[in-house]
Design a protein around this nucleic acid. Sequence first.
DNA 1: ACCCTCCTGTCA
DNA 2: TGACAGGAGGGT
Length: 271
Amino acid sequence: MPELPEVETVARQLAPSVAGRRVRGLEILDPLLEDGRTPQLAGRPIASVERSGKRVLFEFGPARGRQVRPLWLAVHLRMTGRLLWLERAAAVPREHLRARFRVDGGELLFVDTRRFGTFRWYRTREAAAPVGVEPLSPELTRPRLASLLRGSSQEIKPWLLRQDRLVGLGNIYASEILHAAGLSPFRAAGSLDGREIRRLLVATRRILTQAIRACGTTFSDFQDARGIEGSYQRFLAVYEREGQRCRRCRARVERVVQQQRSTYHCPGCQA
DNA sequence: ACCCTCCTGTCA
DNA sequence: TGACAGGAGGGT
């Protein structure tokens, strides 16, 4: 569940369940998750859970008595990572379990089939902040987007996947946003005019907002312990719709490969 | 700015 | 067997 709407969904579902609970311990079962500075967590409360870019950001408060500084953990789910909150007594799925937080009243599990997920620890929120701009923040104005795009000869679809410009977009929503904006994925990012940039901005906000409302996109039929399952797949206009007719202009949706990743677009209405 | 790679699983 | 999968860091 890896793009902005899916990560937002995870953070929103997790926060009320775990915020305020005290951590008893952390077991890292997959050495790939060690970033060399895995700290002692025992006794620290989970102060907050939020989304930052495509990562779930956990804030751990100070433990009673000892450490006074808070601690931040950014969990990147990458392709197949999941964070599962299980109340005590729930059956624990062992398959692909990569890390386990023992928490008062339950367990927070990190499950990740492909093992691409990452943990990164930070001492401050600022250090944990991503470089790119949050697409739904008021910071992303049209002039700001224009300045991000300016001078880039990169094709707009791969440009949207860069996390050092905008954060949170991935392969599904990049294609969906360009379709909603009526923009060809092959356009050079820096070649968009003012009206096109406006369309891109409006489409970005609209698609992401709708996808968050739908709790994201879920392809697998996997049901996790909290029943998090998105429904945005119902609204996909081009992604994984190769050969089907465009809902807007009836042309057939095409799949092409850009930088070794699939791009779906409608050659009829994406100029 | 682009290609490869990391890892595991599923599907044709 | 090979292509592909919601991602991105490292190397050229």
